[in-house]
């Protein structure tokens, strides 16, 4: 697979504070790559360096084949960015904003008009094209931002917390657009989020970042497997529970302890979906019948806890998130 983004010892220091600390990773063409971490972990700083807004203190990154330090103009031409903040000019209409951004990419006017119409249609904003952006709702503004990020048909789209401050329904709709866009334009998508469920559901590969360092990279499945895999609960009927336990302990992929609670056996296995039939068959040979079996994948929350040593949900940054959310809302209301 070809590499769309390659970060090489990417580092950003602000005085004594290291926001991003010698980060290395690769993103392949066509994939959705998620950066998961709490606020202040270095997600936005990383995006700012990859999108040439901020210059790295050390190291560099290759984006679409161009060096962010040596060829920033080339990088800018190949990327689309949807920053965390609302960036559209509120005094202009949605249409005017799109045309402005198109002009900044040097897109000829006629082509820009075609693309703007197509994108507004895609994000279902055609009806509001001639309204001033200040009249848009939060969800509409986010959709306009996405359209603005796509006007130059970027090879790589950067989404910095694309659903921050939106309600669950709008969030799902935004993801729906992102998926459709990728299908339509075959883009690579680099996104940051601190919503665990979003990273789990929408990213094909995830990097967990905390305190400026990448702690783990992999598909959501791989990360969950690293935590110790799935939890299987089997309830057996008749036969000897202890024999069943011995059988299960001997099966490849079962890790950690096997707990027995009455007729119920609970254990961890690397891949629950493939291990379950093998276990059932082995038990069956010994005439032990299972009455129920449940396979539970670990949640991203557990994955996050495993790698960072803390939970993302009740982290200290939540008040900061709330303030940011309020600022975003205040802006949306203006």
């Amino acid at each position: 697979m070809e590499v769309a983004i390659k970060a090489i010892n990417l580092t950003k220091r602000y005085g004594n504070f290291t926001a991003v600390d010698h980060v290395n990773f690769e993103v392949y063409y066509g994939e959705i790559f998620g950066f998961l971490g709490p606020n202040g972990a270095g997600k936005t700083t990383t995006i700012k360096m990859l999108t040439t807004v901020t210059r790295p203190t050390e190291g560099t990154a290759i984006v679409n084949g161009y060096d962010v330090i040596k060829q920033p103009a080339k990088v800018r031409e190949s990327i689309g960015v949807v920053p965390q903040e609302y960036t559209a000019d509120e005094d202009l209409t949605g249409w005017e904003n799109l045309m402005l951004i198109a002009a900044l990419y040097g897109i000829p006017k006629r082509e820009a008009k075609e693309r703007a119409a197509e994108l507004l249609d895609l994000v279902e904003l055609s009806y509001a094209a001639d309204r001033k952006v200040e009249t848009y709702s939060g969800g509409m503004r986010r959709r306009l931002e996405i359209a603005m990020g796509l006007i130059n048909r970027p090879a790589i789209l950067f989404l910095d917390e694309p659903t921050l401050g939106l309600d669950a329904q709008t969030r799902a709709a935004i993801w729906d657009y992102v998926y459709r866009l990728r299908k339509q334009y075959g883009m690579t998508i680099f996104m940051t989020t601190h919503y665990l469920e979003e990273a789990d559901r929408y990213a094909e590969r995830i990097a967990i970042i905390d305190h400026g360092k990448i702690l783990a990279i992999g598909t959501p499945k791989e990360l969950k497997e690293k935590v110790g895999g799935d939890v299987i609960t089997i309830e057996v009927n008749g036969g000897d529970v202890n024999i069943a336990r011995k059988v299960i302990e001997g099966i490849d992929g079962v890790s950690g302890g096997v707990t027995v609670n009455g007729n119920t056996i609970i254990f961890k296995v690397r891949n629950g979906n493939t291990a379950a039939p093998i276990i059932l068959e082995a038990l069956n040979k010994l005439s032990i019948r299972a009455t129920s079996i449940t396979i539970k994948e670990p949640t991203m929350d557990e994955v996050f806890l495993e790698f960072t040593g803390r939970r993302l949900r009740d982290e200290e940054g939540s008040s900061e998130e709330f303030m940011r959310f309020r600022r975003t809302v205040a802006r949306a209301r203006r």
Binding site: V53, A88, D89, R331
Partner: peptide, 12 residues
């Protein structure tokens, strides 16, 4: 107000 400037900086 928002990041109009931050958006401009990502364009060429």
């Amino acid at each position: 107000l928002g990041g109009v400037l931050s958006k401009l900086l990502t364009t060429p």
